[in-house]
Amino acid sequence: MEAFLKFIDMGGYAGYVWSSYGLALLVFGLSIILPLKEKRQLEKRIRRIIQNEKSVSK
């Protein structure tokens, strides 16, 4: 437990170190999640376009 607290404290620089790592996690996470979400929306829209074209050609 003590070793863990020492690790978290980062020799007194905890705020600086962990805010850097936290920010990296946040921006990298968003960089992955946003395109994945966009893909799901795109698939929906393209399905609709294909459906519409099928019904027009009939």
Binding site: M10, G11, G12, Y13, Y16, V17, S20, Y21, L23, A24
Partner: peptide, 9 residues
């Protein structure tokens, strides 16, 4: 000290 660990980001 440990502040150098910011280097890895």
């Amino acid at each position: 000290g440990d502040s150098f660990r910011i280097i890895y980001i």
